[in-house]
Amino acid sequence: MDEIDRKICELVQADAKRSTAQLAEAVGLPLSTTADRLKRLQATGAVSGWHAALDPKALGVPLCAFVLVDMEFEGEAQAAQAIAARPEVLELHHISGAHSYLMKLRLADMASMQRFLAEAVKPLPAVTRTETIFALDTLKETAALPVAETADD
């Protein structure tokens, strides 16, 4: 991936609705060359999809919570799979340290949070403990990745 590919990635990440012609103009390449580069970025998986950014409040899920989950090894894979399948779970990370997993949730309210834990997480046999942290305010939330040079460049 060269500097032009990184620039194309930055541009489509910032605005996926940008046309190939607009991308070509922004990177200073012919339309066909830019289209070929974009196709290659998709083929290699560097660009893996086109997404819209949605407002959690407008969609009725303003509560942002992070849950640390402790699990026993027996049944852990099945429990993690069950948790990851839930639509409330935006992220699920297997982490190092004192806890097994960290999940990020978006829910409507505290009652929804309580139901989620009581019905979807705590009944799982591998789950031994949860610790919930609520976001009081969100100063930055993004799915945008830094597009930087790599050692392969």
Rank of each mutant, 00 (worst) to 15 (best):
M1W: 02
V12M: 01
Q13Y: 05
A16Q: 14
S19F: 11
T20K: 08
A21S: 14
A24G: 06
E25V: 07
V27G: 05
G28R: 10
P30V: 07
P30T: 06
T34E: 04
T34W: 01
A35C: 06
D36I: 07
D36S: 11
R37Q: 11
R37A: 04
L38T: 00
L41K: 02
G49R: 03
H51M: 06
A52P: 03
A52G: 09
A53H: 12
A53C: 04
D55L: 06
A58V: 07
G60A: 15
G60R: 12
V61Q: 14
C64N: 08
V69Y: 01
M71V: 00
F73I: 02
F73M: 10
F73W: 12
G75V: 09
G75I: 08
Q78E: 15
I83C: 00
E88Y: 08
L92R: 03
S96K: 12
G97V: 08
H99L: 00
H99V: 00
H99I: 00
S100C: 06
M103P: 04
L105S: 04
R106D: 10
A108W: 05
A108F: 10
A111P: 01
Q114V: 04
R115V: 03
R115G: 01
L117Q: 09
L117R: 02
L117W: 07
E119V: 07
V121F: 05
K122Q: 11
K122C: 08
A126F: 05
V127C: 09
T128K: 03
R129K: 13
T130F: 02
E131L: 05
E131S: 10
A135M: 14
D137S: 15
L139T: 13
L139C: 09
L139P: 03
T142N: 09
T142C: 11
A144L: 15
L145P: 13
L145R: 15
P146N: 15
P146T: 15
V147Y: 04
D153W: 10
